[in-house]
Design a protein around this nucleic acid. Structure first.
Length: 584
RNA sequence: GGGGGUGUAGCUCAAUUUUGGUUAGAGCAUCGGACUGUCGAUCCGAAGGUUGCGGGUUCGAGUCCCGUCACCCUCGCCA
C-alpha cells in the first residue's frame, strides 16, 4: 500500500511518485491550498492540495480531520526556500497529492495527540491506543524495544542462554503477596504467579546451564507507586562457578551498553563500590545518590557541648552543610521537619552562616569557641551555608538526614541531571528486623554469607551483624536491582531456614522440591535481577515506569482501558468451586 | 489501612488568598464561514456545563460542613 514511510523522504526524493499511509496529525486549510501533516511512527510528512490542480480532491481534503487514516498517491516536490521547515526532518519536501486512495475517518479524539499530550494520565490510559501515538510514548516504546534487543545481544554474546520459566507457579509464604490463580482441575487449590523466577533459575544452575538470563515478567500483589506496578519486567541472570566479582563485571558491561543505547552516554566500568554500612553512615540510605555531596556529618560531640536540651538528650546529632542554603526562605526551612517526619524525626534544627557569624534557628546555642569547633567538624564554613541538624537515635538521625540531603540538593540545584552515577552497595546484612522485631532475610533466604559466621548463626547471637554476599546496583539514588551469591550447601540452607523460624514441616511443604535438588550436585552459583522498567525510567529521565508499560494499572491496581479486574459469571465460579462472600 | 493533593465544557485551566452573591469564563479541539504557502496557520461566528457523586447549612453554594468515589503522591507494604 505504501512505497515510503512518513519519515524518510528528503530532497533526494524530489520528482518521485510515492504512496504514503498514516494518520492525520494536523491540517491547515487556506482556501485555495490545503495542507495535511501525515504521521506514522517514522515521522511526519506534509501533504499539499491545490484548488488550481484538482478542485474536487482539494475540497475533499479540506474536510479531513485529525487522526483520520489516509493512503495517498502523489509526487515528491521540493519546497521553495522560504517554505522549508528546518524543524522537520522531512521539511525540505512535501507531497503534491494526486489521489486519496483510502480514507478511514476518525471521531474527534478525547484528547489531542500532540508532541506533549496535556491530558490527565487517567484519560490517556482510558484511550491508551491513542496516547501511544504521541511522541513521548512512541519514543518510550521504541526505546524499550531497543534496550530489550541490546540486552539479548549482550547476553547472547556472553554465552548466556535465555530460558523461559513458568508463569503458573507455586505460592510461597515469603516475600510479597502472591497473585493467585484457581486451579480448575484441583478444586480449592491455587497456582501463584511468580514474584520472580528465583528458584527456577537456581534449579537451572543445578541442571548445568551455567549462564542463564531471562527477560522475565514478575507479579507482586502489593500497593503501587510511580515505580511499582503489579506486573513488571526483570532482567534476570544466574551464573555458576562465580564470585560476586564476576557478576559485577557482567552487569557493568550490560549497563554500559544499555546506557549507550538508551541515553547515548558512555559510562566507565568498573563502577564505584561502597559497603552498606558506609552508605548508611555517609548518606543515611542504602541507595545513595552520589551526584552531589552534602554528606551526613556526625556532629554529636560538638552539639552536646551546647546548652540546647534537644541536642544533649539525643543519641546522635547528624548534620548537613548545604552551600548556598542560606538563600532558603524561613517558610522553606520551616517546611523541612514535616518533610522528614516519616522517618521519625521530631524536628530539624538549623542555622545560617553569615558574613560576620551565624544567625537564625539554633545559632544562639553556638557561641565561640563551640562555633569554631562546629565549623571544623563540617570541614569549614562559608558565607551562606545552611547547617541542618537532626537529633534523635542514630538510626532516625541518619535516615532523616538522608532525606534532607536529597531535598536540599534538589532545592539548591546541586544535581546534574546529565550524569549517570552507578554505584555498587555491597556487604548487605544477611538479616534485618521486621516490625515485630522478628528476623527476616534482608535479601532473600537463599543468600550466602562468609562461612566464618556459621557458628554465630548457630549460636543465634547478634544475627543482625552477620554480613552477606549480597549487593545492590544503584543509579542516581534509585535501586535498579540486587543480587547475591547463593547458598549451595543444603546443610547451610537448612540452618538459615531454621534461624528464620521455619518448622521442618513448613520447609518440606514449601521448599521441599527446592532443597531436594541441592542433594544431587549443586554448583556454587549466584545471580542478579534488574528492574527493567526502572532502568528505562532512569536512562530516559521519565517520571514513572508507567511510560514503559503499554497498558499499566492505576494505583488501585485497575486497568483503566478494560476495567479489569471484573466480576465473572456464576458458571465460571462454579467450575472453580469458588463462592464470593457477599457481606463485604 | 493511615496522611497529603486533585476533581469545573471533549482536553488544559480561570472564577477577587482566609472572606458564599446576578446569566460559571478563557485557550485548544469541534461545527459554520473567509483566506494561495502554512507547518501550534490566521481572521469572523456558533455550539458546548448534573462544577465527580450524595446529603447538609443558607434567602442564596463551584465556593462552607459531612459522607462517598476516582486519580496522583506518600507511610505502612514491596523476601
Amino acid at each position: 500500500m505504501r512505497t515510503h514511510t512518513c519519515g524518510e523522504l528528503a530532497a533526494a526524493g524530489v520528482g518521485k511518485k510515492v504512496k504514503l499511509c498514516g494518520w492525520v496529525a494536523n491540517w491547515r486549510d487556506h482556501g485555495e491550498i490545503v495542507f495535511i501533516d501525515l504521521r506514522d511512527r517514522y515521522g511526519i510528512t506534509q501533504l499539499v492540495f491545490r484548488m488550481e490542480n484538482d478542485k474536487e480532491l482539494t475540497g475533499r481534503a479540506s474536510k479531513i480531520r485529525s487522526e483520520t487514516v489516509l493512503a495517498i498517491t502523489g509526487t515528491v516536490a521540493a519546497r521553495d526556500k522560504a517554505n522549508i521547515n528546518p524543524d522537520m526532518p522531512t521539511g525540505e519536501i512535501e507531497i503534491a497529492v494526486e489521489s486519496i486512495d483510502m480514507e478511514v475517518p476518525a471521531e474527534t479524539p478525547p484528547f489531542e495527540v500532540v508532541d506533549a499530550p496535556k491530558a490527565d494520565e487517567l484519560v490517556r490510559l482510558e484511550h491508551r491506543y491513542l496516547d501511544l501515538r504521541s511522541k513521548p510514548m512512541q519514543e518510550a516504546t521504541i526505546a524499550k524495544h531497543k534496550v530489550l534487543q541490546a540486552t539479548r545481544r549482550y547476553f547472547d554474546g556472553e554465552d548466556f542462554l535465555e530460558i523461559e520459566t513458568p508463569v503458573l507457579w507455586k505460592s510461597t509464604p515469603e516475600g510479597a503477596r502472591d497473585y493467585l490463580v484457581p486451579a480448575r482441575k484441583s478444586p480449592g487449590r491455587f497456582f501463584a504467579l511468580p514474584q520472580s523466577p528465583q528458584m527456577h533459575k537456581q534449579l537451572f544452575m543445578i541442571s548445568g546451564f551455567d549462564r542463564y538470563f531471562q527477560i522475565a515478567r514478575c507479579f507482586r500483589d502489593e500497593d503501587l507507586r510511580y515505580d511499582r506496578q503489579p506486573e513488571f519486567t526483570q532482567i534476570d541472570i544466574e551464573m555458576s562457578f562465580v564470585s560476586l566479582e564476576n557478576i559485577y563485571s557482567v552487569l557493568e558491561g550490560l549497563m554500559a551498553e544499555l546506557t549507550k543505547v538508551a541515553a547515548g552516554k558512555n559510562v566507565s566500568a568498573p563502577f564505584p563500590r561502597m559497603t552498606y554500612n558506609e552508605a548508611m553512615e555517609r548518606y543515611g540510605t542504602d541507595k545513595p545518590d552520589t551526584r552531589f555531596g552534602l554528606e551526613i556529618v556526625d556532629a554529636t560531640n560538638v552539639a552536646k557541648k551546647t546548652e540546647f536540651k534537644v541536642f544533649q538528650n539525643a543519641g546522635m546529632v547528624a548534620g548537613i552543610r548545604a552551600p548556598g542554603g542560606a538563600a532558603l526562605s524561613r517558610k522553606e526551612i520551616d517546611a523541612l521537619p514535616k518533610a522528614v517526619a516519616d522517618t521519625g524525626a521530631k524536628g530539624v534544627a538549623w542555622l545560617k552562616k553569615t558574613a560576620d557569624g551565624i544567625s537564625g534557628g539554633v545559632s544562639k546555642f553556638f557561641p565561640e569557641p563551640i562555633r569554631e569547633e562546629l565549623f571544623s567538624v563540617f570541614g569549614g564554613a562559608e558565607e551562606n551555608d545552611l547547617f541542618c541538624f537532626v537529633a534523635d537515635s542514630p538510626k532516625v538521625a541518619r535516615a532523616s538526614s538522608g532525606v534532607l540531603r536529597g531535598l536540599l540538593a534538589k532545592r539548591l540545584g546541586l544535581i546534574d541531571e546529565e550524569v549517570f552515577n552507578y554505584l555498587w552497595v555491597t556487604d548487605f546484612p544477611l538479616f534485618e528486623e521486621d516490625d515485630e522485631g522478628k528476623l527476616s532475610p534482608a535479601h532473600h533466604p537463599f543468600t550466602s554469607f562468609p562461612t566464618e559466621y556459621l557458628e554465630q548463626l548457630e549460636r543465634g547471637e547478634d544475627l543482625f551483624s552477620i554480613p552477606s554476599h549480597a549487593a545492590d546496583l544503584v543509579l542516581n539514588g534509585v535501586e535498579l536491582g540486587s543480587g547475591s551469591i547463593r547458598i549451595h550447601d543444603p546443610a547451610m540452607q537448612s540452618r538459615v531456614f531454621k534461624a528464620l523460624g521455619f518448622s521442618e514441616q513448613e520447609l518440606e511443604d514449601r521448599f521441599g522440591f527446592f532443597l531436594n535438588a541441592f542433594r544431587y550436585g549443586a554448583p556454587p552459583h549466584g545471580g542478579f535481577a534488574l528492574g527493567f522498567d526502572r532502568v528505562l525510567m532512569c536512562l530516559l529521565g521519565r517520571e514513572s515506569i508507567r511510560d514503559f508499560i503499554a497498558f499499566p494499572k492505576t494505583t488501585a491496581a485497575k486497568c483503566p482501558l478494560t476495567g479489569a479486574p471484573t466480576s465473572v459469571s456464576d458458571q465460571q465460579l462454579e467450575e472453580l468451586r469458588l463462592k464470593i462472600r457477599k457481606d463485604d
